[in-house]
Design a protein around this nucleic acid. Structure first.
Lengths: 253, 253
DNA sequence: CGTTTGGTTGACCAAGTTCAATCAGAGTGG
DNA sequence: CCACTCTGATTGAACTTGGTCAACCAAACG
């Protein structure tokens, strides 16, 4: 009972799922207990699972990371960026281990949760279990949208789309603002996420800068013309989830 | 009680989840009751959801379909092919509606399930609930792998990868064989799935034919050199799931 | 038959890659 | 304070993959 309601919003995960449910005081206590069992690691560390049984589940408290898959020829594809409040390893637990790797971008503080713990929590606090599934659905929807981007958007469109997505996801957890955000990604990271080469990422960023749409420099993204970006990205934020009333209608919680 | 254990394998969904659990007689009865509430539709019909509340969930009994998203400029990206036994609309129910469309490829026979029904079944038959989540995880893993393909594989690699994947997924439900399978996809469908143009799909197929790796003609895929395909696709079937012992170790069911 | 749908091919073009060189900033040791 | 090094950003030139446009073919169907 160390943590109380006083500090609700200091945990990114709690502010994230607050888009879906308003956790009760006792639910918050249960969550904080789980979130407190954390590990810290420095920037640019990789965890390759390669289908270990009992893949760990991380809930990011602080810092940025990404999930990825490497091809035998050394190419890497970033599946999703893991921001504070996001969960890594959840979709894969039913498959008997993950075939995705996790890499830290900044230094990271992550809660380590076992599948068993998660299952227990879901039974005792069904609303929290629902919130976990909601979060997993959201990450699935983000992956689907990135699939659309890689398949059918131009390089500039992909870049614009990703920057807008990150901006909105950060705002959900109280970070960044509509005018810009802190962004620790290298151009190499962006290339691995967007299916491009680092060289071309550089050219695309220059292009967007010359069009006076965004400036990405010194780990900071500044939006100059957000509507212009939305237009070239064909961006529609619907895939990032609706307000909670929509889902409440389905399950009646 | 019309259906009994005698007819276990006629339902694709039941044979699909049999990779994960062995359903009991009463579980099969419950499943068959749900699967019997079906609709049929002809080939090449589209259902655009566009974030309707209460998006329907389909479990395909027969036929092929796909989930997709369209961009404002008219381009379409296929997210995943929905084969017999696959579920459409599951990942999205927690988001308060889907932003994906569904399209039939062949004529289709699909069970229509409401979120409420699914929730009720999961409570009454927890192992079936687990199987549903396993199935959703699997489809997420397939989407992630397609993301890798679009980001980091060549056109020929993507094509080889997709054909191998479809072959294996069909074998899981007792269709097709290692030497080939019936494939109702048009080159246009392949283009929308692989992020290519139909013209280039045609050239890639010719290329693979000239390399004597696969022949795709008259709605039939014939593998000539499966290992050769695996090589150029960098194919590793691990993402399609492990044997059931792996996941059993986690949850102890 | 004529029409429609999907497959096939060629010539040309453009987006993005490759290779290679240069640059800027941060950290490190002398 | 100055090399020295390392990482990441930047740019140019040549090249490749895949796209675009346009024509033609083949099977299916009314």
């Amino acid at each position: 009972m160390v943590n109380t309601i006083m500090s609700v919003n200091e945990d990114a995960f709690i502010s994230k799922i607050s888009r879906y449910i308003t956790p009760s005081a006792s639910e918050i206590v249960a969550l904080k207990k789980i979130l407190a069992n954390d590990v810290k690691c420095v920037a640019r560390v990789e965890l390759i699972e390669d289908y270990e049984i009992f893949g760990p589940i991380f809930i990011l408290n602080k810092g940025w990371g990404y999930s990825f898959r490497d091809l035998p020829n050394g190419l890497r594809q970033i599946i999703d960026f893991i921001l504070p409040g996001d969960i890594f390893g959840l979709q894969e637990i039913f498959l008997g281990g993950s075939n995705l790797g996790f890499a830290s971008i900044t230094s990271v503080d992550a809660a380590v949760v076992s599948p068993r713990t998660l299952l227990g929590m879901s039974r005792q606090w069904p609303r929290l279990g629902g919130a976990i599934l909601w979060s997993a659905s959201l990450q699935g929807s983000i992956a689907a949208e990135r699939l659309v981007a890689l398949g059918r958007r131009s390089a500039a469109g992909r870049m614009a789309h990703l920057l807008l997505e990150l901006s909105i996801r950060l705002e959900f957890i109280g970070q960044g603002s509509p005018s810009g955000f802190f962004c620790p990604l290298t151009q190499h990271d962006l290339a691995n996420a967007l299916g491009l080469t680092p060289v071309h990422v550089n050219r695309v960023l220059r292009h967007l800068r010359q069009l006076e749409l965004v400036v990405f420099r010194n780990s900071k993204v500044e939006f100059l013309d957000r509507q212009g970006l939305i237009d070239i990205a064909h961006f529609d934020a619907a895939y990032l989830g609706r307000n909670r009333d929509a889902s409440r209608k389905i399950f009646g919680n």
